[in-house]
Computed example of a mutant assay.
Amino acid sequence: MRAADTDRIQVAQLLTDAAANGKIGLTEFENRLARAYAAQTYDELDRLSADLPGAVTRGRGGTCRPAPSSTLLAILSGYERRGRWNVPNRLTTFALWGGGVIDLRYADFTAHDVEIRCYTIMGGQTILVPPEVNVDLRGIAVMGSFDQNIEGEGSPGAPCVRISGFALWGSVAVKRKKRKSTA
């Protein structure tokens, strides 16, 4: 049977748990994660997660509720979203004379398509994405910069992050960055 996006997301979360608990190494995690996002059938997903705790409880075609939409503000200050967190399907950020960092490398995607809207006025924002995630950039800048391309390609079937917005005398930088080895 064909697997759905929700099944791939559940296996990705199971793999993230295993990597966080030291059950699998970083290289193995990244390899399995890329194959999980490319998997077309339940059998392919089962082979990737059969040796992990919690694999038996994974449902078939179950609903995966996206985390609620949220907003991050930095007004004369900063924000930071790093480590393990649930990525909502819609995230809005605003920096006025401030800055922020959104690190998606260790985050759990709760939706296949994620929309991030970034607005910067005289500040800066940085978004870090892992190698397998697909990115679509569509921002504009006036007397500042809004990245219009990102090095590397994501993996087929991996989540897609659509980044849009506006920068006035500020910047929005998007970087593809590998996860750090914990060993």
Score class of each variant (00 low, 15 high):
M1K: 00
R2I: 01
A3F: 04
A4F: 09
D5S: 02
D5F: 00
T6P: 04
D7F: 03
R8H: 05
I9N: 03
Q10Y: 12
Q10C: 01
T16Q: 08
A20S: 12
N21T: 02
G22E: 12
L26Y: 14
N31T: 09
R32V: 02
A34G: 12
R35F: 12
R35P: 10
A38E: 15
Q40G: 13
T41M: 08
T41H: 09
Y42C: 05
D43K: 04
E44A: 03
L45Y: 10
R47Y: 13
L48P: 14
L48Q: 07
D51C: 02
L52T: 06
A55C: 06
V56P: 12
G62C: 04
G62H: 07
T63R: 06
C64H: 10
C64V: 04
R65S: 09
S69V: 00
S70F: 06
L73D: 09
A74C: 05
I75Y: 04
L76E: 10
E80Y: 00
W85S: 03
N86A: 08
V87T: 02
N89W: 04
R90L: 12
R90E: 15
T92I: 05
T92P: 09
T93I: 03
T93G: 07
T93H: 07
G98C: 13
G99N: 08
G99D: 11
G99I: 03
G100A: 01
I102L: 14
L104N: 11
L104T: 05
R105W: 15
A107M: 11
A107V: 06
D108L: 06
T110N: 13
V114R: 02
E115T: 03
R117M: 06
Y119V: 08
Y119C: 10
Y119K: 02
Q125I: 12
V129Q: 11
P130S: 03
E132L: 03
N134K: 01
D136P: 04
D136L: 05
L137I: 01
L137V: 04
G139I: 02
I140F: 12
A141Y: 10
A141M: 04
V142E: 08
M143H: 08
F146E: 10
D147M: 01
N149R: 13
N149K: 13
E153V: 00
S155Q: 14
S155F: 02
P156W: 04
G157H: 04
G157P: 10
A158G: 09
P159M: 06
R162D: 14
A167H: 08
L168Y: 15
L168F: 15
W169A: 07
G170W: 14
G170D: 14
V174Y: 09
K175I: 07
K177R: 13
R179Q: 14
S181G: 13
S181N: 12
A183Y: 12
